[in-house]
């Protein structure tokens, strides 16, 4: 699948938040979206997914506008992993992951054997089948994040969109999440769009990066060309010596 955004603009009332966004991500590719708080990363993701509609421009799947897809068809194509948070009602892991099968379950129907099989298979792939009967609110942050990814995967999407998957996770768990994702991208031939605050994760795992710098200003291209000291310092308004100090203290 090739997912593209063409000349995407989004304005809220009079305020222009995003202008003229162009990007492409395809299967076997990971795209990292970086940028300061409040610059519109989440808005960008929501527009891409169709939660918000572009004021101008459009998102395309293999050249077809996503407006032509029903919500159901779309969720079979694109999986979404929200930011980690606790649930008001605690389900078991199996019950929660099963919800990812919703696009295949008719209005008045219940999940069938096939749906349970899919859940088990995806969890096996993650080596998490032992968590099947555990309550979701009793899991660690890293485990919960993996479960949310599993939930997005049981619908068999070709593109996975994640909103800050490393939020509140320690370094080891961040590594685990990103290793899992890049393995998925490499093996299962899905595409990945990741909203992140950690340039290191982008540098290590993503082929492409989009650095959102301001209202009408962004950089997009190969990660190694986009994510560098100069661009980061400029975007986040860091002192030019920021990375040197970081280097010296940690590795010096």
């Amino acid at each position: 699948m090739i997912f593209r955004v063409e000349q995407g603009c989004f304005s809220y009332q009079e305020l222009v938040l995003l202008q003229d966004i162009n990007l492409t991500v395809q299967t076997g590719e990971m795209l990292a979206i970086l940028g300061p708080n409040g610059v519109g990363k989440t808005t960008l993701v929501k527009c891409m997914l169709g939660f918000l509609s572009w004021s101008k421009g459009e998102s395309l799947i293999d050249g077809n506008s996503i407006k032509g897809y029903s919500r159901n068809q779309l969720s079979k194509k694109i999986g979404y992993v929200p930011q980690l948070k606790s649930f008001p009602f605690s389900y078991t892991v199996e019950e929660l992951v099963l919800m990812g099968r919703n696009p295949y379950i008719n209005f008045f129907s219940q999940p069938q054997k096939e749906d349970y099989c899919q859940v088990e298979q995806v969890l096996k792939g993650f080596n998490l089948q032992h968590l099947l009967r555990r309550e979701i609110n009793q899991l660690s942050g890293g485990e919960t994040q993996l479960i949310l990814i599993a939930r997005a995967l049981v619908a068999g999407p070709e593109l996975l969109v994640l909103d800050e998957p490393e939020l509140n996770l320690d370094l080891a768990n961040q590594l685990k999440i990103f290793e899992t994702l890049s393995k998925l991208v490499a093996e299962e031939k899905i595409g990945c769009v990741i909203n992140t605050h950690h340039p290191i994760n982008a540098l290590q795992y993503s082929q492409k990066s989009l650095l959102l710098r301001g209202k009408h200003d962004y950089l997009y291209g190969e990660t190694r060309e986009i994510v560098n000291q100069k661009n980061l310092a400029q975007t986040y308004q860091l002192s030019p010596t920021y990375f040197n100090i970081f280097n010296q203290k940690l590795f010096g």
Binding site: K46, L49, N72, K76, Y80, M99, A155
Partner: peptide
């Protein structure tokens, strides 16, 4: 079950 999730989550899972 899906209605108890946040609206966006439920929608991304294909729920109207």
């Amino acid at each position: 079950n899906l209605l108890t999730l946040s609206d966006e989550e439920a929608e991304s899972l294909g729920l109207n």
